[in-house]
Design a protein around this nucleic acid. Sequence first.
RNA 1: GCGCCCGUAGCUCAACCGGAUAGAGCAUCCGCCUUCUAAGCGGACGGUUGCAGGUUCGAGUCCUGCCGGGCGCGCCA
Length: 590
Amino acid sequence: MSDLKRTLGEAVEAAFAAEGVPAELARVTASDRPDLADFQSNGALAAAKRLGRNPREIATAVAGRLKDDARLSSVEIAGPGFLNLKVADTALAARADQIAADPRAGAEAAAAPRRVLVDYGGPNVAKPMHVGHLRASIIGESVKRLYRFRGDEVVGDAHFGDWGYQMGLLIGAVCDENPDIAALVGTLNDKDAPIPAAFERVTLADLDRLYPMASARGKEDPTYRDRARKLTADLQAHHPGCYVLWRQFRAVTQVALARDFHALGVDFDWWKGESDVDHLIPEMIADLDAKGLLVDDQGARIVRVAREGDKRELPPLLVVSSEGSAMYGTTDLATILDRKRAFDPHLVIYCVDQRQADHFEIVFRAAYLAGYAAEGQLEHIGFGTMNGTDGKPFKTREGGVLKLADLIETTRAKARERLREAGLGEDLPPEEFEDIAGKVAVAALKFADLSNFRGTSYVFDLDRFTSFEGKTGPYLLYQAVRVKSLLRRALAEGAEPGPVAVTEAAERDLVLTLDAFDGALAEAYDKKAPNALAEHAYRLSQAFSKFYAACPIMSAEPELRASRLTLAGAALRQLELALDLLGVATPERM
RNA sequence: GCGCCCGUAGCUCAACCGGAUAGAGCAUCCGCCUUCUAAGCGGACGGUUGCAGGUUCGAGUCCUGCCGGGCGCGCCA
């Protein structure tokens, strides 16, 4: 059940081969000139270059072999040797019937499923989530869903930072404020003991409030900093009081993070953190040492990762600091080892800010050297930063960082306002209205992000994102909801879908767009670039909207109505599927 | 200083191993609701793809240099 692009591609390949031209050049793509054709192949041009032959001659010969293909209504040669293919309406109708009957809406599954782990790059315990965390979660979630849908076994790991200096700072700050907690920290003797009631009173709001203060004071006050470092070391040595208090920090943070992320339609399979691999570090260091990879340098222990042909000298991986402690990269390397044992992934995708590209290159090289992963199994997909409309990293109007939860609420409020303005959902129960506003808000935020290529930075413009007109998430939801409304009415009137017939231009375009789904998915999958899928979802919505405007459905004659209901149903299924892969949920009505 | 990324319409962004006339949305202007949701549809306007060379039948895409912007460069994570 392949798409037209592929099946026609196979036909053109066969024709190329029969003409003694390398078949791999016969790539068929959607036409650049929809006025002339549905699909094109530029292969004759490439072949002519390689074989030293005339491109038009090759194209003419190939076209002669395709003339009798019943799926094609015309085969023409244009320009220097473009092969222009137009698909017969009957073939389009047949393909539409296929897509309509397919639960996967015309999408193929991966031929060889792999085990894939998606690392979301880790929010930190106690550091509030801000808009900078938005991209990692939005892109990571989409990549996870995309890989899972294509058939891979996928695990998404939050991988949050829960084991560093910020924990020592917080332990100190909480103890300073609560003498009873400080006393308990001194007396507890079992790190696995139930969390005492006094500790359970510590909330995320407390951590949010204390962390900036403690962090600032640690920078100014060496005594304060030294105590925080000592507490960090105590925690890492599993000092019972510190450890139990830390468990409380971790628990309240995880609950809040899970809630905030869930509101965004982002859910993790694993809640692993840096602390989970701490126990592996001594063993790993011994292993690196035994493999002769560890080198003493300036009092620290490092792994050199420079390679011949590097354009510059890459810094080494710092495994043990001169103070004897594990570093950022140490934990990342241990995590690779841990994942190999727990899951043995074929591919690990790190969805992290582009600024950390060098860091990951260093860690990956060290992992390859140590044999914790095979070359190429670790991949960092970087993304650009979110800037404000002034081009600088995003700040609120007051100049502070915008918390993720506040951003979601702001967008949701805008969604409510716009829904009311448009008179949408006004007769619905309050809970459903609120649910719709939430979905509209998430769609707006996610689609705005995912329609950009992840590698580039983009401007975060709240006003534009909440305008909800044109190429936006809410537009996509609106189209989906219009189809749902239509299908409900058809059901109520007893109108049944039936075989597709393609006659109108809008119908042709809709079917061709439906057919392009698998290609968009494949591109998004191969490049780890959800914007290809976002683009398809938009085109599909547009194609549907034009069809909806041009082709009356319920008032059409029964056979035509049945055909159009099938098209509408297929469009809806594919659109909802695409939206789901982008991490966007669709309401039933609005 | 070295390295990485980016520069496309007034603004925000696309562009399928190099292909035909570089596409969308916003903004501006003009049309379309007594028929399935107008957050919609149709149309107009808008480009020397930062600059200069090179490779190629063909370059936004590849190569070189320059200009402009962002980011990174061992004991934070």
